[in-house]
Write a protein that binds this DNA or RNA. Structure first.
Lengths: 194, 194
DNA sequence: TCAGACATGTAACAGGTTACATGATTGA
DNA sequence: TCAATCATGTAACCTGTTACATGTCTGA
């Protein structure tokens, strides 16, 4: 299982509580992983038992106490080992594509609305990624950035996120066009036979 | 859960045994879903109990007997209902991106090899999809095809698969270039300080 | 002769989701 | 006043993976 590895990689950005980590993970890993908060707490506990992370309780007065997790030497080693292992194939589940497969037996308007929702969220997500990249480059061009930065990993995953969303948007537009064209045909056919 | 819906959609291509369905699913849904054979048998049984599919046992002599599943009226209705529902967000887990995130702490050569493997499988997968599209169009141009075919759903998911793989290939090339550039820098730095 | 296709399934385990419980503080 | 943020966690349940069991036929 590599949610553990995903969490270790996220901790490279600095120590965090489970709560903070969940939010960070949701942003930083949004284009390649997703996990529930409830899952993180359980996973972090297991990781602590294994010695991959260590948690320190910070007492607070007006807020509930928190446990700040940090990656240990062993965690770092385990992450290194994982990074040099060959990867599995991408696991994905896309509801919309199931609907698209069965599109022809159902109401086209509902599917068109669904495609439009997907397009809109892709546009929004892409804008976020573009902003992140600009903040990361901080005025430098890519070549300079790659030469001078401490870590290029997060930059590369952002590029991926942008490319993925662009592709998403393009596909949504094509699909909407073709489905709409077909709906016309069906409607025309219906009025002819009516 | 919508593995059930994914299976119903796959059965629109015709009746099938669990075994056949698993193979079909692996090909037709390869760019948006993946399921284990063991899971299908369990799921099909549950679907039969619900009345979404009906199975007929076919006795065979030289082969083990088989159960051919077909979608029922109720299954069709349930699928229609599902298609008009709004979709969830895409769920994906990509190991490689976790590795890329943590790339900077580990051996770059291993990651480069991993990126290259990903690129190669994307190239192969794309070639398969392109072949599928050609077989589907069967000499017709897109406009004619969309006007005359019985189902456009499978065509749209194929377009998506192709776009996804193209994007994959492009990203792999960019990432490999940037990681290689950085490895050079590191190696140069090392020899300077040695 | 050996791998792979055909064909179905179970059992054990690992991973993931949803709902619930608690409760103060802060900003709209 | 209402929703959101901070902060942690449990319990029940649902999904998904891996390994195992069985046995013949076909082609390389």
């Amino acid at each position: 299982m590599s949610l553990q590895h995903a969490l270790l990689a996220t901790l490279l950005d600095g120590d965090a509580t489970g709560y903070e980590l969940a939010k960070r993970f949701d942003i930083a890993a949004s284009n390649f992983w997703h996990a529930q908060r409830a899952q993180l707490y359980a996973e972090l506990k297991r990781m602590e038992d294994k010695g991959l992370v260590s948690g320190e309780t910070v007492l607070q007065t007006i807020r509930p106490n928190k446990r700040v997790m940090s990656i240990t030497e062993e965690g770092l080693e385990e992450l290194c080992r994982f990074v040099t292992e060959p990867s599995d194939r991408i696991a994905l589940k896309d509801d919309l594509m199931v609907k698209i497969t069965a599109l022809d037996i159902a109401d086209h308007d509902a599917v068109l609305a669904d495609i439009e929702r997907r397009r809109e969220s892709a546009v929004a997500q892409m804008a976020r990624y573009v902003g992140d990249v600009e903040r990361m480059l901080h005025g430098r061009d890519e070549e300079t950035f790659v030469r001078t930065t401490h870590r290029i990993g997060p930059y590369l995953t952002l590029l991926r996120g942008i490319a993925l969303e662009e592709e998403n948007i393009r596909w949504c537009e094509t699909a909407a066009r073709l489905v709409a064209a077909r709906r016309q045909r069906r409607t025309a056919g219906r009025s002819r036979t009516a």
